[in-house]
Amino acid sequence: MKRIIQVACLLLILAACKKQTASLENPIDPNTVNIIVQATSTPNVYRFINAQIGKTAVAKWDLGNSSTATGDTVLGKYPFKGDYVVSLTVFNGITAVTKKVNLSLTSDNFDLDPVYGLLTGGAGAAAGKTWVLDSLSDGHVKLINNNSNTPWNKLLKTGKGVYDDELNFKLANKEVVYKNNNSSYCHGGTIDGIAQYRLKELNANWGTTTSATADGGDLQIAYTPNKPIQHWTMQVRNGKHYLQLYDGAFFFFYRGQADVIEYEITSISENEMVVTHYENLPASRASLLWRDVYLVIKKGYVRQ
């Protein structure tokens, strides 16, 4: 009998210590749902805590940096300076309650995003990192839409002003230099009834073309970018990196855009990178989901 009483007492104690969560009978006051923000020892890394820790169902977070998380305590990493809105959503026993907090960062911490280092060589690479087309691989350029996939086989465009082109990216000042040895390659067909549409667009927004030689539906051009040193920026959207080029630089085959051209970094490693350009001008090409895929490698890299 004594042992039975002891067990019963233990069960009562455990029941009393059991975590009390929100319920219809005992809802949490929405005004007490808040976010606790803690800086960590790493710049631009913050800890976010559900102020009702242990009292709600699973806490769901939108960290404002294209990332989401669950749990009462989560970490947010912010490689780029700027303003972010962090939101927490919990169930208070009756309904979902969302609270938000603003986070303002005045400096970058590129070490938090390896893509920056892989693209440029990192802060320690004063000379930057140079990329070229992988001309020795089949499919180093693929021109794709809803109905077709046209790859360039290895060395297909030898002597056409494309394989000697280089893009040098630096982390400092986000500089990029498009070295084309005075010759580039450009989409040059008739689009929407406008003869040599891309060439006109290129001259209007990107640089100066002094001559053009037809190569099928495209053009080999004598081209000089608007500025001797061009620039780049990068955005992360829905977990993907998007690289924007300005001032006359592009990935080796001009396929169209206004005064900035954007590429999705589809994959990247120390020696290889795949970038995809989704065409949005003119509307006739955007409607067919034209995208252009480029396989590039670090200059000097030789596949084994």
Score class of each variant (00 low, 15 high):
residue 288 L to P: 02
residue 107 S to H: 09
residue 87 S to K: 00
residue 189 G to N: 13
residue 247 D to F: 12
residue 48 F to I: 13
residue 44 N to M: 10
residue 102 N to I: 05
residue 276 T to V: 14
residue 122 G to C: 02
residue 89 T to Y: 02
residue 278 Y to L: 10
residue 116 Y to P: 00
residue 87 S to G: 03
residue 230 Q to Y: 09
residue 162 V to T: 12
residue 198 R to H: 14
residue 33 V to D: 05
residue 66 S to G: 10
residue 275 V to W: 13
residue 214 A to M: 05
residue 173 N to M: 10
residue 9 C to V: 13
residue 50 N to E: 14
residue 152 W to L: 11
residue 22 A to I: 09
residue 27 P to M: 11
residue 242 Y to W: 11
residue 107 S to Q: 08
residue 159 G to L: 01
residue 257 Q to C: 10
residue 23 S to H: 10
residue 288 L to K: 12
residue 179 K to I: 07
residue 114 P to W: 01
residue 76 G to T: 09
residue 156 L to G: 01
residue 172 A to I: 13
residue 161 G to E: 14
residue 128 G to Q: 05
residue 210 T to W: 00
residue 166 E to M: 09
residue 257 Q to S: 15
residue 177 V to F: 04
residue 120 T to L: 10
residue 51 A to R: 00
residue 12 L to M: 14
residue 138 D to R: 04
residue 170 K to S: 09
residue 69 A to W: 10
residue 170 K to Q: 04
residue 300 G to D: 10
residue 92 N to E: 05
residue 134 D to C: 02
residue 152 W to E: 15
residue 40 T to R: 11
residue 58 V to D: 14
residue 151 P to R: 12
residue 169 F to N: 03
residue 2 K to H: 11
residue 235 Q to K: 14
residue 80 F to N: 07
residue 209 T to I: 07
residue 218 D to W: 13
residue 2 K to M: 08
residue 115 V to P: 00
residue 296 V to Q: 07
residue 205 N to G: 01
residue 252 F to T: 02
residue 185 Y to V: 04
residue 58 V to H: 01
residue 42 T to K: 15
residue 104 S to T: 13
residue 212 A to Q: 10
residue 249 A to F: 11
residue 293 V to S: 07
residue 217 G to L: 08
residue 114 P to G: 00
residue 164 D to W: 03
residue 38 Q to C: 08
residue 278 Y to T: 08
residue 139 G to S: 09
residue 37 V to L: 11
residue 81 K to F: 05
residue 177 V to I: 14
residue 260 V to I: 06
residue 247 D to C: 12
residue 33 V to E: 06
residue 262 E to F: 06
residue 72 D to E: 09
residue 164 D to R: 06
